[in-house]
């Protein structure tokens, strides 16, 4: 099996795996980074969202062989800073229920947070549409995100 060097959460990790393995399964099964979740495997739910070079990407739909020299950030990497304003906002509004979709929601919001000063409502809506939550936490995610960007703006 080919060997890949991946830059994940600021560290270089070496994995031996099939070239077609989606990043999702490398993270979960090989590297024990199980905060990134499997929901659909087809790019339809967003639970597996990570940042690749600061863009929100669905890790179930990116093959490991396409990631040389890219910077990957997972929820574990972000959570090294427990004081990150996203987490604070999420806790304040209790945006999580079962919690399974939340790493994907948070990483999606992070891509906006890292980019814009203050995204428009349309930007937020476009980013979050399609990151599915079966528990129905959207109203609270909205509140958490609104406050997040209000505090900044």
């Amino acid at each position: 099996m080919p060997e890949y060097k991946l830059k994940i959460n600021g560290e270089v990790k070496t994995v031996n795996t099939d070239a077609d393995t989606p990043l999702l399964w490398v993270l979960r099964d090989e590297l024990g980074l199980t905060g990134t979740k499997f929901g659909c495997g087809k790019g339809l739910c967003g639970s597996c969202t990570v940042l690749i070079n600061d863009e929100a990407e669905r890790s179930c739909s990116v093959e490991v062989s396409k990631l040389q020299d890219k910077e990957i950030l997972t929820i574990e990497g972000l959570a090294r800073d427990r004081e990150h304003p996203i987490f604070k906002s999420w806790i304040e509004f209790e945006a999580s229920q079962c919690g399974y979709c939340q790493p994907g929601q948070i990483m999606t919001v992070l891509s906006l947070f890292n980019k814009h000063g203050k995204p428009s409502d349309a930007d937020i809506e476009t980013a979050l549409t399609g990151v599915l939550c079966r528990c129905g936490t959207y109203p609270r995610i909205k509140k958490a995100v609104d406050q997040l960007f209000e505090n900044r703006g």
Binding site: T34, K37, T74, R82, F87, I91, E94, S96, G99, Q102
Partner: peptide, 18 residues
């Protein structure tokens, strides 16, 4: 505040699939 929110949003909570 929910006791399960922090581990769930930090990605450390243990779901069955993990």
């Amino acid at each position: 505040h929910r006791k399960d929110t922090p581990p769930k949003i930090y990605g450390t909570a243990l779901f069955g699939i993990d």
